Simulated scan of single mutants.
Amino acid sequence: MSAYEDDKMSEDTTSMSNSDDEKTVCGDQSDGGIFESSSTETLDEISIVDISINILNDEGIDMAAEFPSSSTVEEILKTVENQSFDDYDLEYNGQILPRNKALCDIGINKNDNVKVVERKTKIFVKDDRNGYKNAVDIQLSATVKDLKEKLRNSYQNTEQNLRITYNGSELADSKTLRSYNIQKNSELVTTSRCYGG
């Protein structure tokens, strides 16, 4: 065999070895992924393994579903929440899961529970009495009453007759922030309710 043929064979072997390395695991096993992968397994072989997980909402189990182990959190959210997936996160063992991570990277096992939780949105609430503006992280499914409670707890606002207005209209305690089309960075105003003349 000539020196040229020896070099060519060595290049081909290195190329094959690198190609196999790129496909050996689903994610970084040092992160505690659930699949122990031998060097002969390819990403395609791992991807066909389905994991059955329980998707929870606030009321309990909403659905049980099977996903390929290579599915990312974002792909699962798109399946579960359709068009509104940007408003939600997946929570596992009390932690919000990164959207770009695959199930096999996170360590989710068969029949584990993951919870769909609404993302918090930053809004601003201005106190009409002193002009102070506070940033508040809150879910848009929260009611106006929930927001008032949060303001009392977080900012020591002891005012019992608190009114909240948005675009000049007073907000009803029983309605959600979303029902008033409140969005990220919206500014609400708190005032004290006055009685009598």
Rank of each mutant, 00 (worst) to 15 (best):
M1D: 05
A3N: 14
D6H: 10
E11I: 13
T13I: 15
T14S: 13
T14K: 15
T14W: 14
S15Q: 11
T24F: 05
V25I: 09
C26V: 05
G27R: 01
G27I: 02
Q29W: 06
I34M: 12
S37T: 10
S37G: 03
S37E: 09
S39H: 13
L43W: 07
I51A: 04
S52M: 07
N57D: 15
N57K: 01
G60S: 03
M63D: 05
M63L: 10
V73N: 05
E75R: 07
I76V: 06
L77C: 07
T79K: 11
V80L: 00
E81K: 02
S84Y: 07
D86V: 04
D89P: 03
L90E: 08
Y92I: 06
Y92M: 02
Y92L: 07
G94D: 00
Q95W: 01
L97C: 05
P98S: 07
D105L: 04
G107Y: 03
N109S: 08
D112V: 03
N113R: 03
N113Y: 05
K115T: 08
R119F: 03
T121C: 12
K122I: 14
F124G: 07
V125I: 13
R129D: 13
N130W: 05
N130M: 06
N130V: 00
G131Y: 06
A135T: 02
L140T: 01
T143V: 00
T143N: 04
V144G: 04
K145P: 00
K145E: 09
K145Q: 08
D146E: 10
D146F: 02
K148C: 12
S154C: 08
Q156V: 05
T158L: 14
E159A: 11
G168W: 04
E170H: 09
L171W: 10
K175C: 13
K175Q: 15
S179K: 09
S179L: 06
Y180P: 08
N181K: 15
N185Q: 13
V189N: 13
T190Q: 09
T191E: 13
Y195M: 15
